[in-house]
Design a protein around this nucleic acid. Structure first.
Lengths: 109, 109
DNA sequence: ACCGGTACTCAGCAACACCAAGTAGTTCGC
DNA sequence: GCGAACTACTTGGTGTTGCTGAGTACCGGT
């Protein structure tokens, strides 16, 4: 993906990760791998970890340290009540944006 | 709109403005007013002007100075060939993102 | 003369994603 | 048992972007 994606991801990536966590708890390495599979080929690993630290500090997720069989202990994140609220808000904002853009795409042709 | 919108607009706002210009030429003040009408209530005026300067420097738009009846001269921007190409690319990136998010929204419920 | 609407500019700030490198633990081949 | 490869997280610095707030300037109506 081009560099347009980089800028477009700002703000959206956070929602994406929270949405993933709303399905089931997960840890950084896992999330990164999953995103890569989904086609977000060039998402930097560091980006995800930094994002997770951020949402943790804002109290949107709970963290649990779980020992791993193959490597250092994992930090498993799960969405809490406040995070769910925030995710709802994210979807509202996203819907608004998506609607306007869809309109523009049709009208602009 | 919350501050989630601010971050989500990064990268998207540029596409929005270019999409507007793909319909017909326009000037900054006009674009700002139109966006406000469309519900982008808190888009700062300065933001649009800065964005227009940027896309101009990248050669995505052509500019023409037109005298106004009520105020300083207007800088009327119109999308050129390169800009159209860039806009296409924008739509591709957007589609990709929108698809993944739609999937996530359904799967996550 | 002044205020409100039109129209654009500029300087400084904060947030976010990227990049590069580093730290550590485990497993597997030589 | 030593290094490579994979797992897993951390840290410091960079560039782009949108926001804030103030400033400039031109016009019309009261």
């Amino acid at each position: 993906m081009g560099k347009q994606a980089t800028e477009m991801l700002k703000g959206t990536l956070e929602g994406i990760v929270l949405a993933i966590l709303s399905g089931q708890p997960a840890y950084g390495y896992e999330i990164t791998a999953w995103l890569r599979e989904q086609g977000f080929s060039d998402i930097a690993e560091g980006t995800i970890y930094a994002l997770l630290v951020r949402v943790e500090q804002r109290g949107l997720v709970d963290v649990e340290k779980v020992p791993s069989e193959k490597g250092p202990p994992r930090k498993v994140y799960s969405l809490n009540a406040q995070g769910r609220e925030y995710l709802e808000e994210f979807w509202r904002t996203w819907s608004f944006l998506a609607e306007r853009l869809e309109q523009l795409r049709e009208g602009g042709k």
